[in-house]
Simulated scan of single mutants.
Amino acid sequence: MKGCLFIHGFTGAPDEVVPLAEFVKEHTKWDIRIPCLPGHDQPGALRGVAFQRWIECAENELADLLEACEEVYIAGFSMGGMIASYLATKYPVKKLVLLSAAAYYVNPRQVIKDIRLVIEDGMKGTLNENEVYLRYRKKITETPILSTLQFRKLVKYTKPRLPEITIPVLIVQGECDGIVPMKSAHYLYRTIGSKEKKLCFLPASTHLVCHGEDFEELAKETAAFLGIRQYETEKV
């Protein structure tokens, strides 16, 4: 049996990657795991959680998956992408999918565009229809500053391991991402040591690529990369 571990991002939850995980599950008989990282299960729980615990949680889930399956893949979103990259250098993972992986963070130009749209919707009285505002209002108001520092420490801790990655890698990046800039994807492509690696840019997607307008393209690229034949047969 094959297995795939999905790792969500900082201040997020499993639902960030659920659409892609469900797509893989629908077209395979694989063992799919989507753990919730410590401190991400309820509001205010992040306070006092060290970044090592996020890595340990994903690592324990991966160890269980490796025991249960003959071949294992990892897909990591945002901060989860950096955790996935780190684990791929320690364990016999076969393939790695990086979704908006946060080697760098905060895209100033896109943030300005997003803020402008939020202001415009606020003036029109349609703020509660603005996807960016709804998704990030809670994150901004409920994330402790010290937790953000732990996130930065995790990125600093995992980045040096990128050249050690030698397995096939698919790097996915939304071109309208206001959290992780495009240069992050380019940096990952240059730095990762794998000979087999591919960059996939989604033109209409923001940070949450699994919930973006380009999901069909994301699913297609993921299926091709992971060798999901049932999906490929359906599209013929």
Rank of each mutant, 00 (worst) to 15 (best):
G80I: 02
G80L: 03
G81K: 05
G81S: 10
M82V: 09
I83L: 04
I83W: 00
I83E: 00
I83M: 03
I83Y: 01
A84K: 02
A84M: 07
A84G: 10
Y86D: 00
Y86K: 03
Y86C: 02
L87R: 03
L87S: 02
L87A: 03
L87V: 06
A88K: 00
A88Q: 02
A88N: 04
T89F: 05
T89E: 04
Y91E: 03
P92D: 05
P92T: 06
V93Q: 01
V93F: 04
K94S: 15
K94R: 15
K94I: 07
K94Q: 14
K95H: 10
L96D: 00
V97Q: 01
V97L: 08
V97T: 02
L99Q: 04
S100W: 02
S100P: 05
S100C: 12
A101E: 06
A102D: 03
A102C: 12
A102M: 05
A102Q: 02
A103P: 00
Y104M: 12
Y104F: 15
Y104K: 15
Y105C: 07
Y105S: 09
Y105N: 05
V106P: 00
V106T: 09
V106R: 10
N107P: 05
N107V: 00
N107G: 03
P108A: 09
P108D: 07
Q110R: 11
Q110N: 10
V111M: 14
V111F: 10
I112S: 09
I112A: 11
I112H: 09
K113R: 15
K113I: 10
K113Q: 13
D114L: 05
D114T: 06
I115S: 06
R116E: 13
R116C: 08
R116F: 14
R116H: 11
R116I: 08
V118K: 05
V118N: 01
V118I: 15
I119L: 15
E120A: 15
D121K: 09
D121C: 09
M123R: 15
M123F: 14
M123A: 12
M123I: 14
K124C: 11
K124G: 05
K124P: 02
T126S: 14
N128H: 13
N128E: 13
N128R: 13
E129K: 15
N130P: 10
N130R: 09
N130G: 10
E131A: 14
V132E: 01
V132D: 00
L134R: 13
L134T: 03
R135A: 12
R135Q: 11
Y136K: 05
Y136I: 09
R137L: 12
R137P: 01
R137W: 06
K138S: 14
K138F: 15
K138G: 08
K139S: 12
K139F: 10
I140E: 06
I140F: 14
E142R: 04
E142I: 12
T143N: 07
T143E: 04
T143S: 07
P144K: 06
P144Y: 06
P144L: 09
P144W: 05
I145M: 08
I145L: 13
I145G: 00
L146E: 10
L146H: 02
L146V: 09
S147E: 04
S147W: 01
S147A: 15
T148S: 07
